[in-house]
């Protein structure tokens, strides 16, 4: 709602909005700060906000003791792999629904999306057993496949909403000029669809990166990503807040940084394309 705001009101509003922002950011900030404290300072009474002796000790210990690199690598492979595979399958599907719609297209789309609403526990055990049979329990490839399938409806849906906004006249004009189906997709559709695809990819990487239900249930030592690492870290070392914070900071840093440099895609992706 655009309307005139007096300068004082504007300052008060901005201050209020920033106060809320700080409150929201506080738990994240606190985790980062705690990761640089000693264990004693992390649980000091009263809590210390900034006046502590900054140390990198926690990071060193976490890296040495728990093979952080392996978990990080698993996270990258699983998030990247499932996203890539999902987009490859979803782009043609979304393309056909957006540009060659049939009577059933809307129904199929809604049906796909509705499956996403179903709780994952309903399919957990059969997949678990299937994975044992196929010998892909606790493997990267297994998780890539599962996370791809889990997020496929969202990828198709999001790409569809973006593709819908590409004017069909452009495609008709290209066809008039004799472009083949392949050329149409490569030279016209793809460049116009890049922003939408980028938001979709970012959302999917975030979803897969944060996925805990499937990764906790289907991995053990070999293919466990960072979420499983944090979960395992927090039980036996429950009282070691500083080290746990260091591990947590390393797990969220990639998303914080990636999100900061692609804010537009982040907002667009996290709202499932509702905010363009």
């Amino acid at each position: 709602m655009a309307r005139a705001v007096t300068p004082q009101r504007k300052i008060i509003n901005t201050a209020a909005a920033w106060a809320v922002g700080l409150a929201i950011f506080f738990p994240i900030l606190w985790t980062i700060l705690t990761s640089f404290k000693t264990e004693a300072q992390a649980i000091a009474d009263p809590p210390i906000f900034l006046g502590f002796d900054w140390t990198l000790e926690n990071y060193k210990v976490v890296m040495e003791r728990s093979d952080y690199a392996k978990y990080l690598w698993n996270s990258i492979i699983i998030a990247g792999g499932s996203t890539l595979l999902g987009v490859i399958i979803a782009v043609p599907a979304a393309w056909s629904m957006a540009f060659v719609p049939s009577r059933r297209t809307k129904d199929i789309l809604m049906w796909m999306l509705s499956t996403k609403m179903l709780p994952a526990v309903g399919v957990l055990y059969p997949i678990y057993l299937l994975f044992i049979k196929l010998g892909i329990l606790d493997s990267q490839i297994g998780l890539v496949i599962v996370l791809m399938l889990i997020n496929l409806p969202i990828i198709v849906w999001m790409l569809y909403t973006y593709f819908k906004e590409i004017p069909g006249e452009i495609l008709e004009a290209a066809r008039m000029d004799g472009a083949t189906l392949k050329e149409e997709v490569i030279y016209i559709l793809t460049p116009m669809a890049v922003p939408g695809i980028a938001s979709t990819i970012l959302l999917n990487v975030i979803l897969a990166w944060n996925e805990a239900f499937w990764t906790l249930n289907l991995t053990a030592a070999k293919a466990a990503p960072l979420t499983a690492f944090i979960a395992s870290y927090s039980s036996p070392e429950g009282l070691f807040y500083a080290k746990l914070s260091a591990a947590s900071t390393m797990a969220i840093a990639p998303i914080l940084i990636l999100g900061w440099f692609s804010q537009k895609q982040l907002v667009s992706g996290l709202t499932f394309g509702a905010v363009k």
């Binding site: 738990p27 994240i28 985790t31 944090i230 746990l244 947590s248 914080l256 999100g259």
Partner: peptide
Amino acid sequence: LYPMALSMIVTGTA
């Protein structure tokens, strides 16, 4: 929007 982008497994610590 940041809290939505971060794993609750991780922010649960804080």
